[in-house]
Design a binder for these strands. Sequence first.
DNA 1: TTTCAGTCAATAAT
DNA 2: ATTATTGACTGAAA
Length: 480
Amino acid sequence: VRSLTETVAIATESFAMSAAPAASVPSPQLSLSSPGLEARQEEDHVSPAATPALSLSAISIQELVAMSPELDTYCITKRVKEVLTDNNLGQRLFGETVLGLTQGSVSDLLARPKPWQKLSLKGREPFVRMQLWLNDPHSVDRLRNMKRMEKKASLKRRSTVIPDGESPVPPPTSPAPAAVSPAPTGLAKKARVVLAPEEKEALKRAYEEEPYPSQQTIEMLAAQLGLRTSTVINWFHNYRSRIRREHFIEEMQQKSPGLEGSCTPRMANDGAVDDAGLSPDRPRSTEEQRLNVEADQCQVLQFESYSLPPASIKQEMVEEEASGICFRNEGQEGLPLQTLHTQVIEVGSGSGSGSEGAYLDEGVKGSSPKPEAEGGKGPLVSPFPSASPSCLPISGETPPLPPPLVPGASTHSPLPPGAGPGTRGSSPLAQGSDGALAMGWKEGSVRKALRDEVKAANLNSIINRLEKAASRDDSPDWEF
DNA sequence: TTTCAGTCAATAAT
DNA sequence: ATTATTGACTGAAA
């Protein structure tokens, strides 16, 4: 029986990154985090019988984060940007569905990633998710599907009232309820403060002299500039931290080998499949690259759907043929529930056509978080209780998982800060991202079997892709 | 309390 | 439409 430890090891490996797991045993600590949940589910379970589908559903990303070897945040963001642009995927969708972050945050993260060592456990999470996403061969397809569904949904929404030709009256839009503009609640939203360039200049000057101004200085500045003191305080906090960050990136670039390839997981290996000159429409090289990676590194499982919670996925996409995706929307307002799930799928069966059917994943999503808060007040948030395991197949996941997103609830990991990575003492070699994949973990027979399976799966997947490429409908999705 | 890290979310800029 | 910027907020350290 697979031990938790082993499972973890495998999972970690699938990360495919740098890493050297150092000799020490990596897992001791994990267990402490969520006591009951996971642990048990080892395999016993049910039917999945025959296939060696592993389920490491039990591992939460927080644990993954804690155990993760050092990742090259710069390379990760670089690759993510490539994949997104190559496939015409926006950061909004990516952020909301993969990372559980808003567009602005994603933009910032991709543009100015902090070095791994400077990140807190919480801050590493998005990078781990990105790495996972990059490793997952179906990630792009999934996102594409979602994009399609969203589009369809919005289209439907638009036309929904128009059909019979009647009711040219626009009112229908936006339900009567909410409506009305400024009056409700009486409180206009506080206007966003926008500092004038000169004000910023003044603040910067003040910063040069005193990066940490005293209460007194702050008040003086505020008075002088006609700003609220809290604005001045916030400005200093933000400025300091942003300056600091710039620093990091400088440092980081300085050390980087500079060459491109360093971030690209190109493997020289097997010529097998490889791109036989097929590049039907568009440079989808990154995709191929991904393929290579997977093939070689044997990332067996995919952690799948980290579904996000965040906010926003419109409930519109709920129905639809989400191949395998199951969203649940709990209804109104604000309930964010979410869940993150890592689940594994079995690889063996082929991924049939395109994305359909092949993998089963699921996700549960919360909905509508943002829709204003009207009603009552602000505090929102819900203790979102229930989990809503609705569609989840197997995995016993963890309901108790803290929702990564949303107000108040941030997840914390039980692990002590220092703990996590403890094992890997210091520099993991590698990092080259070139798939070095240090395998330090022992390779058991189970793994071997898996590997074979993966190979087969990869073949299928590749075939699939080729077929797809040949008949790609990919239309630039545009307009009518 | 104050600072820091992460994010959000409005709005600027492309 | 998307992506970038940035003041403000939240929770955790110090």
